[in-house]
Design a protein around this nucleic acid. Structure first.
Lengths: 213, 213
DNA sequence: AAAATTATGTACTGATTGGTACATAAATAA
DNA sequence: TTATTTATGTACCAATCAGTACATAATTTT
């Protein structure tokens, strides 16, 4: 309910209207579908025609519900960020015993996806397309990347508590570093889709955090 | 002369014509100007109107000389690659004494540019925009990134010869790894333009290659 | 100077862009 | 059933897209 209200626009602002035709599509599902298109094609590369086809709705419904292509893009970016598309399993495994294992899995899945689907993190793609020029995009992306850093930081913190990582190390910087590696592998991976090479690169990136593995 | 011939199109195919009006613009300079626009805006984001304005030529001249926007983009990408835009100094300093210094400088300049101009490597931007879908773009980018890897590899090789890097290490993988770091720092840098953080990340990335620094 | 050839600028094209206007359909409260 | 409100589909819009056609300007060989 609260979720639905977020998407009410000018024409639709009376939240507790007494008379209204019910919406025939699921807003969340429509955003998810649009996200897939933006993810593949980027903002400029995705046309309204394509987006509407993917969402399965008409122009009338769309502009009543979302207002503009740009607004839809922001929603799609938020959806990507809030569903943690590229690192779901990290949150799903908060009790994983070994940080090394978790992060190794993160990189392995990343490499797999990069090579098989040429799908890179949508936030990274947005970063390069907008170069921080669009403040709204910038904020969403910044939050999303901080989120990834924090998830990694949590893992590293637990590892430090259990002794898997030595006490003196600056985990804040290490999580930034691993995040950078995360994006670097994607760019390199699309340009040169060689699994073996990427796995070696990932292993080196991790070896600085876990010198004993 | 050979350079000019590369840009002859259908209308212009008689290479040794006896009668011809001389071209009023410098092809190379025009490509360089177009490159700046593509670099900032991407392929889809750059309109012909913008490109022509930047190049300072009219439609007639343009289509006679280049054939299409896509063709111009390929030329611009090649120009970017062949002028080594983002790592000029690495080639300028082949006799640098210490590999660590050279690479440190590479990362410092990269961070500076990323933060000040939000300008990331055009090849990386092309990678994410095209996702390896355009074979011509893919080939140019692949070559360009290999070029960067090779420049780094050369530096590492010399360092291994002088003992700055120990004998047993796999330099091939290390240069791929540093290339990934190179791109990762850019993505992270545009998303979160914090110089201190990026410098620390860069230092960590290098520390695995030069554990004694 | 005349013939030959290419370069350039301009007017134009059809297709596509994101977005609007609006008539109609659907839903509910009265 | 009727009044009220919102959702939906369609026809339409101006602006912009990349690209063409072509007349004219410029250059060189003859």
């Amino acid at each position: 309910m609260l979720f639905i209200d977020l998407f009410r626009t000018k024409r639709n602002r009376k939240a507790n209207a007494k008379f209204m035709r019910t919406r025939e599509f699921d807003t969340r599902q429509a955003i998810a579908s649009a996200m897939e298109v933006f993810w593949r094609k980027g903002y400029k590369g995705a046309s309204m025609t394509e987006l509407l086809a993917a969402m399965g709705i008409g122009k009338g419904s769309f502009y009543a519900a979302f207002g503009s292509k740009h607004e839809l893009y922001l929603q799609a970016l938020r959806h990507f960020r809030d569903t943690g598309m590229l690192f779901k399993h990290l949150k799903a495994l908060p009790e994983a015993n070994f940080a090394y294992e978790s992060l190794r899995k993160l990189f392995d899945q990343l490499i797999e996806r990069t090579i098989n689907e040429q799908k890179t993190c949508m936030l990274g793609k947005a970063v390069l397309e907008f170069r921080g020029q669009d403040p709204q995009v910038a904020e969403i992306v910044n939050m999303g990347i901080s989120q990834l850093e924090n998830v990694i930081l949590e893992i590293l913190s637990k590892a430090q508590a259990t002794g898997e990582i030595s006490k003196g190390r600056d985990l804040q910087v290490l999580s930034s570093y691993l995040t950078a590696a995360f994006y670097g592998i994607q760019v390199l991976g699309v340009a040169k889709p060689c699994r073996e090479n990427l796995e070696q690169v990932g292993a080196i990136a991790l070896s600085i955090v876990f010198p004993n593995q």
